[in-house]
């Protein structure tokens, strides 16, 4: 008798575990739509790319355009600004990675890896610290300065000083003419 009791309790244990596991899977699959609904919806995703005519931006000026709800800085750099950026030693950079969505991977943050054409710097204008919009032509490196927590970016949008951990993100973009780009 003892052995048959053991047998019965084993079978019941199995049923408990199987039922419990089934309920956990069921609860998790019911929870997923409730979590995933919070992710960007189709209308937000649809704004994935924009085209910009840059012919009206004079040398030394910059504009801000809105892409995916975030500002993108397009800066028409002067030859001196390009020269300063290209001659910056890589060991002076706080974040050594290019952060270029078009290149990906671990390429270094040299100026060449931050732009497609040196005169056009295109970066997402969101401070990599806590998301404020940096102010142009300010800070110790005359690039951008974030007023929230004091991050200084240089003329290639690279973090040089302050709490921000990464360089300003370079979005994926391509030239669709001499002075026009498609971002995204």
């Amino acid at each position: 008798m003892a052995s048959s009791e053991t047998h019965e309790s084993n079978r019941r244990d199995f049923l408990y575990i199987a039922t419990g596991a089934f309920a956990v899977v069921g609860a998790a699959s019911a929870a997923w739509p409730l979590i995933h609904q919070m992710n960007p919806d189709a209308s937000v995703q649809a704004l994935a790319s924009i085209e910009i005519d840059m012919s009206a931006i004079p040398v030394g000026q910059s504009i801000t355009v809105k892409w995916q709800g975030r500002p993108v800085f397009i800066r028409h750099r002067t030859p001196e600004e390009i020269k300063i950026s290209q001659e910056t030693p890589l060991e002076d950079l706080k974040d050594p990675v290019a952060r270029n969505a078009g290149l990906g991977g671990d390429v270094d943050a040299s100026d060449a890896n931050r732009v497609i054409q040196p005169e056009w710097l295109i970066v997402v204008g969101v401070c990599t610290h806590l998301g404020c919009i940096p102010v142009k032509n300010q800070g110790d490196y005359n690039g951008w300065f974030c007023p929230c927590h004091g991050s200084h970016y240089d003329l290639a949008g690279r973090i040089r000083f302050g709490p921000a951990p990464e360089n300003l993100l370079v979005p994926k973009y391509e030239f669709i003419g001499d002075d026009a780009v498609r971002i995204g």
């Binding site: 979590i35 919070m38 992710n39 960007p40 919806d41 937000v44 995916q68 709800g69 975030r70 969101v126 998301g131």
Partner: peptide, 13 residues
Amino acid sequence: TQLLWGGFAVDNP
């Protein structure tokens, strides 16, 4: 952060 925002920045969602 995208899950919290429902987008790529703070917005209507």
